[in-house]
Design a binder for these strands. Structure first.
Lengths: 333, 333
DNA sequence: GCGGGTGGTTTTAACGTTCAAACGTCCGCG
DNA sequence: CGCGGACGTTTGAACGTTAAAACCACCCGC
C-alpha cells in the first residue's frame, strides 16, 4: 500500500507537495502537478483516512442508530438508508451504524462514539414525543440533526427536517375530492402520537376547506395492523352514512381497509377511493395498486446531511412535502 | 477531550503505562493500575480510535453495501441490520454502510474503501447467481464473508453462511402433513434463481419422503407480488385435484394466496394450510397470522462476524436451519 | 542594485496512539 | 558478593497525514 512518502520519492518532490496536489492543487505549478498526479496514478496511491483524521480531527463518519421499533413495521427503512448513504457519499462521508437502548438510556453510547472519535455527529430518526435525545446531545455539544420533530415541545433543541404530514393528508383529500368523492373518512392512530395528530389535522382542515363533512368519519386504531385497518373500514361502512373515500394514516391500515372493501364486494378505486401513507413497497404489489404519499427520501437525506455537515448559524426547521403517487385504489386505470 | 498524555501526567506515570493499563493491565502493579484507572475515570478519558487505528492499522469497521433490489421487497432488512450491528458491537466493531453499483461495476468502491482504510473487510449479502464479487475480492485479498451462496458455481471463493432453504420448505411440508394435509402444493419463482431451486427441492424431497404427490402441484410466479401469489393459488384451486396445503417461497406470495383463499370463501388454516418464508413483519399483522420460516438472524450475524474477524484456516461453509413459526394460516388456535 | 512582493516548494512539528527496546530494581542462587 | 532473570516502568521511534512557518528564486519598480 503506497504512502505519501513513496509517491513523493517517485515524483521527486516533498511529501507536502503531494499532499497539496490532492488538497490544494492550485498551489502547484502545472507541470509539477502533472508529474505528481502521474506518480499517484502509477503507484495507485490512496490516502490513509486514519492518518488524515488524526491530523484534522474529522472522521467524516455520521452515526445512525439502527431502529428497532418493536410493534411498528418499518417498511421504508431501506429506502431511507439508501438515500442517507448516497447523500453522505456525495460529500465524501459515510454512515456508521450502531445500536443503542431507546431513550435516555442510550445516550452513553452516543457519547462514547463521539468521544472516541468514531463519528463526527449523528442523524436521529424514530423521534418520539418528548424525545430526550435532542436536549442531551445539545447539552453535550455533540452535533446532530433530527429526521422528525420532537412533538409537543414548545421549542425543540437543534435542527430538524420532517415531512409535512398534514400537507400530505390534505393532498390526499383534495385528490379524492377531485375524483368525485364527497364523504371522505380518516383512519388513524390515537392522537397521543404527534405524527397521528399532524396527519389527522391535515385531513380535517382540507375537508373543512372543501365544505366536506367530518363528523363521524374518523376511526382511531390502537395498532398498525391489517386487521385494525379492516375493522376500521368495516365500522365506517356499517355507519348510517358510509364514506366514499378513505384517507389512511399508514399503508398498512390502508391495505387492511382495501381487504375489507374487497371482501364486501366493493371495487376499491371505483366505489370507494383509498389512500395510504409512505408509499411502501407493498403499495405497488397489491391489486389494485394503493395510492399513497411518498416521502421525498432523497431530498430529506440531502437536507439532513447538508445541515449536519455544514450547519448554518441558526437552527434549521424544514418541512418537506410528500408526493401523492396515484394508483388504482383511488383512480382506476 | 483528554489524551493519554494528560492522564499520564495526572497519574504521574508515563504515557505507555496508561496505554498498558488499557490494553495489557496484567503488566502493571496492582496499585499503579488502580491509580491510573482512577485518573482515567476522573478525566473521563476515551481512547482516540483514529490514533489507535493509525498505529495498529486495524479500523474495526466492517463494510456493508446497503442493498437496493429494484423489484424485490426486502422486508427483513432491518432485522438483519440490527443483528449484524449487535454482533459487530459485541466484538468492539461497527458497521459502515455504503452504496455501490451492482455486480462487478461496484468493485472499485469496495477496493477504494479498503485501500483508504475505512474498513477492514466486508459482509456481502444479496448474493446472486454467479456473483462476481467473491472472486474479485479474493483475488485482491480483501477480507470478506458472504451471507448467501453464489449459486451454480462448483466452488465458491471465500467463506459463506446461508440459510438452508430446502430444510425450511421440508419443515413446512412435514408440519402441514402432521396437521393432516395430503396434497401439498408449492408456489415459487422460476428456477433460474438458485434460491428458488433450493426451496423447491426441499418441498419435493419432503413430499416424496412422505409419499405425497407432487405432480401438477407447482406454480412458478414471474414476480414476487401479492397478485402473482393470488393467481398461483387460483390456478391450483381450479385444477381437477386442488391442494389442501400450500408452501410458498416467500411471505408475499403466501399472502397473495391467503387473499385468494379468503376471496373464494375458504378459511385458511382450516380448509387449507399455508406457509410463507422469512417471517416478515407482515406475517404477524394479517389475520389469520401467516405460518412462516424465520431465518435465525442473530445466529447468522454472529457467525458472519466471527468468521470475518477471526478467520479459521480453511474456508467456512455453514448452513443454518430456519425456524418454523406456526400461526393461524396452518393451524388455527 | 536594492528592498519588497509573490508563487512555488520544503522543513518542522504535531495529531494520539502502540511497539520494541532499554532501563532500573529487586530477588534468588551459587 | 556478584550475576542472571523477572518484573514493572520508561524511552524512543514510528504509523501517515496536514498546518504553519520557513525558505528560495524570481520579478518588479525605482
Amino acid at each position: 500500500m503506497a504512502t505519501l512518502k513513496q509517491v513523493a520519492a517517485h515524483a521527486e518532490v516533498s511529501v507536502q507537495t503531494v499532499s497539496n496536489a490532492l488538497n490544494a492543487p492550485h498551489r502547484l505549478r502545472p507541470d509539477t502537478l502533472a508529474r505528481v498526479n502521474r506518480s499517484i496514478e502509477l503507484l495507485n496511491y490512496r490516502p490513509n483516512r486514519n492518518a488524515r483524521s488524526l491530523r484534522t480531527s474529522a472522521v467524516e463518519l455520521i452515526g445512525y442508530c439502527v431502529p428497532s421499533w418493536p410493534n411498528r413495521t418499518h417498511l421504508v427503512m431501506d429506502q431511507f438508508l439508501h438515500a442517507l448513504c448516497a447523500a453522505a457519499e456525495s460529500t465524501g462521508r459515510h454512515i456508521l451504524l450502531f445500536t443503542a437502548p431507546p431513550g435516555v438510556d442510550g445516550m452513553p453510547v452516543y457519547d462514547d462514539l463521539h468521544a472516541r472519535r468514531l463519528v463526527d455527529g449523528f442523524v436521529l430518526s424514530q423521534t418520539e414525543t418528548r424525545d430526550p435525545r435532542h436536549g442531551w446531545l445539545k447539552e453535550k455539544q455533540i452535533p446532530f440533526i433530527s429526521f422528525g420533530r420532537v412533538w409537543k415541545e414548545s421549542t425543540q433543541p437543534g435542527s430538524w427536517v420532517d415531512v409535512d404530514g398534514a400537507a400530505g393528508t390534505a393532498l390526499a383529500v383534495r385528490h379524492l375530492h377531485e375524483t368525485g368523492r364527497r364523504r371522505i373518512a380518516f383512519i388513524g392512530w390515537p392522537t397521543t402520537s404527534g405524527l397521528a395528530e399532524d396527519r389527522l389535522d391535515g385531513w380535517r382542515t382540507a375537508c373543512e376547506a372543501l365544505d366536506l363533512p367530518t363528523n363521524g368519519l374518523t376511526v382511531h386504531c390502537p395498532e398498525d395492523t391489517l386487521d385494525a385497518g379492516a375493522r376500521a373500514a368495516a365500522q365506517l361502512l356499517d355507519s348510517p352514512q358510509p364514506p366514499d373515500g378513505i384517507v389512511a394514516l399508514s399503508d398498512i391500515l390502508a391495505l387492511g381497509a382495501l381487504r375489507e372493501l374487497t371482501r364486501r364486494g366493493h371495487t376499491p378505486g371505483v366505489d370507494i377511493g383509498v389512500t395510504g401513507f409512505d408509499d411502501s413497497p407493498l403499495a405497488d404489489v397489491v391489486s389494485p395498486g394503493l395510492t399513497s404519499l411518498r416521502q421525498p427520501m432523497d431530498d430529506i437525506a440531502a437536507e439532513l446531511i447538508t445541515v449536519l455537515t455544514d450547519p448554518p448559524a441558526g437552527p434549521v426547521e424544514r418541512l418537506l412535502l410528500p408526493e401523492l403517487i396515484v394508483r388504482g385504489s383511488s383512480a382506476p386505470g
